[in-house]
Design a protein around this nucleic acid. Structure first.
Length: 260
DNA sequence: ATGACTAATTCGATTAGA
């Protein structure tokens, strides 16, 4: 079961890019972030035509997440518990029925948090605490579960080309990195790090300042796996080439393959 | 020191992203 996470930065602007990608790369499951559209306006037909079931949790203009699946998709729920006043569409869950076993997937778009300090950073840290609580609910189930998406967190210095440029940024502040580590210390595994300890494995390059040409990237799109999902891991990789394609997002797809 | 890109909203300038 190949599961890709991909921040597409707007489905309207990226429809051709995304449908070409789905046709050529054919992920079994695609977890999308920043669809930036309401559910009713999501281009379902163009994507269903390629063999995908679709579950969206959209929002006007900003945010919005979606699960696309070639395999049966069940028990979809929307929203991250823990704050009834939070109206951002940043979390959707579903169960994908593989040939051998079912996998719960949680597609997330974690708040950016800039500028710091301030209310947006407070929201980011609170959101991470809510995610921590949600993960704690899942772990006793001892099931294969994948938490994948745009975490907006650079975990370590080896995940950023120019660490000094990010010292004051919400993506790399010690509190953000500690909150990410606290998710891992619950017993989750960063899929890429189960396959490689290399530096320079980036998933985002800014549109500005020639970041792509200079390889001035960061790794902020991750799959965190429960132990039972990690047991099934066949491979994990970043589709770096996507950044150099036609009308690219500023993020690229990040993949895992599970024996499911 | 500053702005630089891109997208969405709604057709101009603002907000947001990271």
């Amino acid at each position: 079961m190949k599961i890709a996470t991909y921040n597409i930065n707007g489905i309207r602007a990226r429809l051709e890019t995304v449908t070409s990608w789905l046709s050529e790369q054919a992920p079994d499951v695609a977890l999308l972030q920043e669809i930036k559209i309401v559910d009713e306006a999501f281009p379902r037909e163009e994507i269903e035509r390629l063999g995908y079931r679709i579950a969206t949790h959209g929002q006007k203009s900003f945010n919005g997440v979606a699960i696309l699946s070639k395999l049966p998709l069940e028990d979809v729920t929307r929203g991250l518990p823990g704050d009834d006043s939070d109206d951002h569409a940043r979390w959707i869950e579903g169960t994908v029925i593989g040939g051998q076993r079912a996998v719960r997937v949680c597609c997330l778009y974690l708040p950016n948090g800039n500028p710091t300090p301030g209310p947006k950073y407070d929201y980011k840290l609170r959101w991470m605490e809510r995610m921590h609580a949600r993960v704690r609910e899942f772990l006793p189930l001892e099931e294969p579960i994948v938490f994948a998406g745009d975490y907006n967190v650079i975990p370590e210095a080896r995940d950023v080309r120019q660490p000094d440029n990010w010292r004051e940024d919400a993506l790399f502040l010690p509190e953000s990195r500690a909150a990410f580590r606290r998710l891992e210390s619950l017993g989750l595994y960063d899929a890429i790090r189960l396959r490689s300890q290399a530096a320079g494995l980036y998933s985002f390059w800014d549109f500005q300042r020639g970041s792509w040409e200079r390889d001035n990237g960061i790794r902020i799109d991750h799959h965190l796996l429960t132990p039972q999902a990690a047991d099934l891991l066949v491979d994990a990789w970043i589709e770096r080439e996507a950044r150099g394609g036609a009308k690219p997002s500023d993020h690229v797809p990040v993949w895992i393959d599970l024996d499911a």
